[in-house]
Design a binder for these strands. Structure first.
Lengths: 224, 224
DNA sequence: GGCCCGCCTGAGAGCCGCCTGAGAAGCTGA
DNA sequence: TCAGCTTCTCAGGCGGCTCTCAGGCGGGCC
């Protein structure tokens, strides 16, 4: 079993590499983002262990690039931040599992083995909610079968909503995840973009939960 | 000259890739059988270097599948086993040449060049997208039936786009595959060449996906 | 029913990504 | 060596996208 470890903290990288080798894995190490992405693109790995905070290119962006290129190698993400950004961020980008630093080595290996058992047969996912489909790979959206043109921000927002259908999402949460914005950003921004989506898609697709936030209705009527 | 290297030993793959690049080839790498077959099916390679022992799908079966699908791309096979299976096995399956590990890099390149000189015996594939046709064999392009003169780079870019119609391709990916360039190359280069193609072909053939990249529209109108 | 506050929306400013023309550098063949 | 072509670089400009702002609507509480 061949692994790619992308980790910039040399001490941790070294320790992991030694441990994993002792456990029978072949381990290659990349120390920065661009290098990691390049190695990952070359293929040949049964799984990739990926730190989030990397010089040059974040782990998030690496996974997103790989998935966009139809590369479905299993990815286990490591994050030092357990509050600011959360699991969902990593999983959104297309990672398969997530571990928060500090973690136990035993847990890492267990999760890794689970990933490898599962393998990489994941097909490119297309999200669906009522008459709306969204393909993260080609960044294409259709409504009732017809293609819909969305801007980048509109697409990101819709994707985030569609990954959590029927859940109330606060504006703060959306600002944080879709915009990567500071907490004091005007929440009106979200309202504006929800308005854009409603106009381009379906007025009833995104329900307002007054005082709380918004909720994507997965069983949208499709009428007008 | 574009090569596909299917090899699961990451270290060997990496070394070969580096060497071949230095020798002027553009090299894509696949690390397992199914991945290699998929990449090979996409076409666009002047030759394929194929390991016999691969996870998921043996090199033999890959060649057999390709030949069954009328894909006559030159294949050079690599095998670690020099006794159990022999040259005849590989050549029977439809490979064009055969090398036993360990081999000298110089020999590999020599055999490869011989293969490339010989070329693929039959090239039945012609790519089509709306009013545009592209023949990888003769490197000829037509628009609405009339021949169009493209430079080398223009042709390579168009071919890459036409092999992945309706998919968003980032500038980085295009630079990587069409130019075989380092990641820090100015992405404007892609913009310029997309502009050239649009001018020579159809303005609407290649859609800009702002913030993401470009997408070849397979159902282009053909108008104008 | 009246008021407050949260949400909606139209208009517009600023910015950034993309497009393009011009030209330098490199390559090829005569 | 030179001409012609291709490839690539650079800078200027345009336009779409993002975000801000202010005014209006309406739901909910009293």
């Amino acid at each position: 079993m061949r692994l790619l470890l992308v980790e910039d903290e040399a001490r941790l990288a070294h320790a992991l590499q030694r441990g994993l080798r002792a456990d029978g894995f072949a381990v290659d190490v990349a120390g920065d983002g661009p290098g990691g992405l390049a190695r990952a693109r070359e293929g040949g790995y049964d799984a990739i262990i990926l730190d989030v905070m990397l010089p040059g290119l974040s782990g998030y962006r690496i996974v997103r690039s790989l998935r966009q290129e139809q590369n479905w190698v299993p990815v286990l993400m490591l994050s030092a931040k357990d509050g600011e950004h959360d699991q969902a961020d990593g999983l959104d980008c297309g990672a398969d599992d997530y571990l928060t630093k500090p973690f136990s080595y035993v847990v890492l290996v267990a999760r890794l083995r689970a990933l490898l058992r599962r393998g990489a047969p994941r097909r490119p996912v297309v999200l669906t909610a009522g008459p709306v489909t969204l393909d993260p790979g080609s960044r294409a959206v259709t409504y009732a079968g017809a293609p819909v043109e969305l801007t980048g921000r509109e697409f990101d927002l819709l994707e985030y909503l569609m990954r959590r259908p029927d859940t109330v999402l606060t504006k703060t949460e959306l600002l944080d995840h879709v915009w990567d914005a500071s907490p004091q950003t005007d929440p009106n921004l979200v309202e504006v973009y929800v308005g854009y989506l409603r106009r381009k898609l379906d007025r009833s697709l995104i329900a307002t939960v007054r005082g709380s936030g918004y909720r994507l209705v997965s069983a949208a009527s499709g009428g007008v």
